[in-house]
Design a protein around this nucleic acid. Structure first.
Length: 204
DNA sequence: AAGTCTCT
DNA sequence: TGGC
């Protein structure tokens, strides 16, 4: 409970650069390996039949999934099994920086390989927008773009690096955001390269 | 109700 | 932007 230094604050979007040091990042990756053994990455399909370029999995009571019948939180992996628990190493980060009294119910795991992107979207499948969304970057640099409460208008871009933590709460909670590109191979954290983004959310 | 898509 |  000693950590958070002052974040860069941009319109209620808080960026904690280098929040995790290298060995903390390595410990997280080791925890993720166990999770992904039980809940393998899958490639979601949008309701209109297009493959997303990121690969996903999750931990916690819910994972976010997309398929032809829509976007939703699901208590099970597409293979039918429940998601693994969110490890304490990750819950600790939530408790230290989220400023939220509820625990996260979903730890989404997004793996971005070479060329993977995430289109601009809002996180709005949750029941309580009072709880923030917390994101942890691991591996290759990713170009994150923040927009506004509606589509269009001016946006701001930031290169997120391994170990960075971002909190979208308050007025930033429902802003459109996305990932425009990955600098594939820019980090040595993940042996196969790529970027992992962990997103913690209260969903119910 | 669309919606993290792809196109300009 | 379009529209399962």
């Amino acid at each position: 409970m000693e950590k958070p230094p002052k974040p860069h604050l941009i319109r209620d979007f808080a960026l904690y650069p280098a929040y995790l040091n290298r060995s903390e990042q390595e410990d997280l990756v080791a925890d993720l390996r166990d999770i992904l053994k039980a809940a393998p990455l899958f490639q979601p399909i949008t309701p209109r039949g297009q493959k997303m370029s990121v690969r996903m999995s999750a931990a916690g009571r819910f994972g976010w999934i997309s398929d032809r019948s829509g976007y939703r939180y699901s208590p099970t992996h597409p293979d039918g099994t429940p998601w693994p628990d969110i490890p304490d190493s990750i819950l600790k980060i939530w408790n230290t920086v989220s400023g939220c009294d509820r625990m996260p119910e979903c730890c989404l795991i997004n793996w971005y390989g070479e060329g993977a992107r995430m289109g601009m979207h809002q996180d709005r499948d949750e029941a309580d927008f009072g709880a923030p969304v917390l994101s942890i970057s691991l591996g290759d640099d990713g170009l994150f773009r923040m927009g506004n409460d509606t589509r269009g208008g001016k946006t701001e871009s930031y290169w997120l690096k391994s170990g960075d933590v971002v909190v979208m709460g308050g007025a930033a909670r429902l802003r459109y955001h996305g990932v425009d590109r990955i600098r594939f191979g820019s980090s040595t954290l993940l042996p196969k390269g790529g970027r992992i983004n962990l997103t913690l959310r209260v969903v119910s």
